[in-house]
Amino acid sequence: MIEVQGLVKKFGEFVAVDHISFSVGQGEIFAFLGPNGAGKTTTIKMLTTLLRPTGGSVSIDGINPFVKQNEARKRFGVVFQDPSLDGDLTAAENMELHGVFYHVPHKLRIERTEMLLRQFELWERRNDRVKTFSGGMKRRLEIARGLLHTPKILFLDEPTLGLDPQTRNQLWTHVKHLNETERTTVFLTTHYMDEADRVAHRIAVIDHGRIVALGTPQQLKQQTNTDSLEAAFLALTGTTIRDEAAGSADQMRQMAKLWGNKR
């Protein structure tokens, strides 16, 4: 479903992503892990057409997303770190707006909205404004919305950041169920190693823009002779606290220029 070959992204002289290659199969839950500033979010933004690569190639369900952008976007749903819901609209209205944007037929919009809101335990709150929701409810709604147009791939960029353990567990239970029942491919990033260990079929670890390990959670533990994914992660990436500021000035200037050109 996802094929990446020699992918590169530079911001000025700063190399955020440095010739990475990997593939993700249909129905796979694939975790993309790395320290702060390692290149995770930059990679997701390239995979979801928000950033154009400096070099290399990407294929989404057999489509080049930089040649057929709209066709590629129909293939995936995405939940970024930053909230993107309209708090003044109800849950049902947020779902409806998304469905219209993706040209989902009216009858199917109604059916999928009810199914997903029930699945994510939000149906009883469908007519409430989103600004009254808890953080966990908003995250569940964002994921439900991302699945409305029946995407083949769901990108989740740190979807449980800041949520309590109970809500995190509930959210992953829902995601795993949809992965199993609809064969949705899931590409996720998280800083919670226990989550990746529990839900991911395979894991890629990126550090300083390069993939330093790729395999199942068990394979990574065996490779590093450790007994937990967190210990394996630290063995692969080190224990030094990372500073995201490195290269951030160039990156922010490039991002501002990109969005300015799109308006």
Rank of each mutant, 00 (worst) to 15 (best):
V199D: 02
V130I: 09
P159Y: 03
I20L: 11
T184V: 15
F14Y: 15
A245E: 02
V79R: 09
T237V: 07
H149E: 10
R253P: 01
A72H: 06
Q222D: 02
S134T: 14
I153P: 00
L116W: 05
G25T: 03
V24H: 10
A72C: 05
D86S: 14
L108W: 12
M193E: 04
G25A: 14
E111T: 12
V58Q: 12
L148I: 04
A144L: 09
A72N: 11
Q5D: 10
T239P: 11
H98A: 06
A196R: 08
T173W: 02
N225C: 08
L147D: 03
D164T: 07
T190Q: 00
N127L: 05
V8Y: 11
P35V: 03
S59L: 08
A16F: 04
Q223S: 10
A144H: 04
G215A: 05
S84L: 05
A235M: 13
M193P: 12
A72S: 13
T173N: 14
V186L: 09
W172E: 13
V8L: 11
G209I: 02
R139W: 02
P65C: 13
N64K: 00
G39T: 08
D207M: 01
T240W: 04
E114Y: 14
L188R: 02
S248N: 09
H103I: 01
E195H: 08
D197I: 01
H98E: 07
A256F: 12
E230T: 06
K10R: 14
H19I: 03
G12Y: 01
I206R: 15
S84R: 13
A232M: 10
A235N: 15
T49E: 12
F80S: 07
D86A: 10
A232C: 13
I206N: 15
G25H: 09
T185P: 00
P105W: 01
E71Q: 12
N70G: 04
G34L: 03
P165C: 05
S23F: 02
F32W: 09
I60K: 00
T185K: 14
I29M: 13
Q26A: 02
F101H: 02
Q222N: 08
A31I: 10
L85V: 09
R118K: 14
W172R: 05
L258I: 07
I2Y: 00
R210K: 15
H106S: 12
P105N: 06
D86C: 05
F32S: 07
L116I: 11
K9Y: 04
S248I: 04
V104H: 14
